[in-house]
Amino acid sequence: MTQFAVFVLHGLAYAGLLFLVSSGLTLVFGMMNVLNFAHAAFYMLGAYFSYSILQWSGNFWLSMLLCPLILFVIGALVERFLLRRVHQHGHLHELLLTFGLAYIITEGVKWIWGNYSLAVSLDGFLTGQVSLLGITYPVYRLFIIGCAVAVGTAMSYVFYRTRVGIIVRAAVDDHEMVNALGINVPLVFMLVFAVGAALSGFAGVIAGPLLTTYPGMAAEILVDAFVVIVVGGFGSLGGALLASLIIGQLQAFGVLLVPKLSLALIYLLMAVVLVVKPSGLFGEEA
C-alpha cells in the first residue's frame, strides 16, 4: 500500500512536468499547425539557464522567476523573426526550421556547458523528506506536483474564464475567422508561442534537480510530450492534462509491474487511442 502511494506520487510528479511541457506544444500546434520540434529544447535551456543562475546566485527561486522570462523572450523572437517568415512556404519549411533550431540549441548547449551531465544541487527545505501517513517522501517531488497544480489552475482560469482564453480557443478552431473579426492574430500566435516556451522553460527549471541536466534531456522529453498531445488531442488543454496524468502513471507503474515493457507502454497507449479515437481523447472529430 505504501509502495503503491509512492508510485502514484512519482507518476504525478512526472505528469506535472509533462503537462507544463506539452500544454504550450499542443496549443501552438492547434492554432498554427506547427509541430514545434524546438519546444523541448526550450525546456532544456530552462534547465541549463537555471544551473548557471544557481551557480551565480545560489538562489533557486530567482531561477524559477528568471528562466521563464528569458524563455518567453526567446520564444517571442523565434516566432516573430523565424517562424513567421517561413510560414508562407508551408508546413514542411516550418517543421524543418524548428528541427534545425532544436539541433542548434542542443549543440550550443554542448558548446557552452559541455557534453556531460551536470548536477543541480539544492539546499534548504526542498531537499528534505516528509513523513505522511506512514510514507516518507521527498519534499521536492511534492513541490513539483504543487507547481504543476498551481500553473495548471492559472492556465485553465485564463483559458476558460477570460476573453484572452476565448480568443485562443477560437483561434484553435479557425484562426482566419478570428482575424476577420478584428483580433490581431499574428500577435496572439507570438504570445502563445512565447508563453509555451516560458512554461517549457519553467518545467526545465524544476526538472533540473529531479532528472539529469544533460544535452540529451530535450530529446528524452520530446517523445513523451508528442505522445501526450496525440493522446490528448491536438490543441486541447484538457486533453494534454488527462494524457499527462495517464502517461505519468503508466511510467511509474510500468517500471514497477512490467519493467521490461515499461518503455513500450506509452506507445501501446498511443496506438490504442489512435485506433479507437484517432483525434485523441479530447480532440475534435474532423
Binding site: I167, R169, A170, D173, D174, I183
Partner: peptide
C-alpha cells in the same frame, strides 16, 4: 465585417463566447 459563406462558427465555443470574440 464579414459573414462568411461556410458560417465558420467556432464549434467548441458556446454561443455567448462566439459573440464575445468579435
Amino acid at each position: 465585417g464579414i459573414v462568411p459563406e461556410e458560417r465558420r462558427i467556432f464549434g467548441s465555443l458556446t454561443v455567448e463566447e462566439n459573440l464575445l470574440i468579435g
